[in-house]
């Protein structure tokens, strides 16, 4: 079928990795936003302005890096299994 071939739906290597790699950047940014939002909400509630915002922003930055680390690990694991599949097919 032309459409499936054109968009490589059956090819695991291509769109799969492309979509994972494309999502890494926004994962990092959005966790920082969520961290700041949680911290600001806690500050508003407890009326201690700078503390929770700062702490949760740091937590958000760490969570963003952790997201990038996890995504990269997933990508590497996927590439490894794909190369093993290819080598297995050649044998």
């Amino acid at each position: 079928m032309g459409l499936a071939k054109f968009f490589n739906i059956n090819d695991r290597n291509y769109i799969d990795n492309l979509s994972l790699a494309g999502s890494i950047g926004l994962h990092m940014v959005s966790s920082i936003f969520v961290g700041v939002a949680i911290g600001y909400g806690l500050d508003y509630w407890l009326d201690i302005y700078p503390w929770c915002s700062g702490i949760f922003m740091l937590l958000g930055i760490v969570a963003g890096f952790k997201n990038v680390y996890d995504d990269t690990r997933k990508l590497v694991a996927r590439w490894r299994s794909e190369t093993e599949e290819k080598i297995g097919k050649k044998k």
Binding site: L26, H27, S31
Partner: peptide, 18 residues
């Protein structure tokens, strides 16, 4: 625990914004 909570809450935000 807070890091994981923040990163889980970031998932719907990044899905929406993308």
């Amino acid at each position: 625990l807070p890091i994981e909570l923040v990163s889980h809450c970031a998932r719907p935000l990044s899905l929406t914004l993308r």
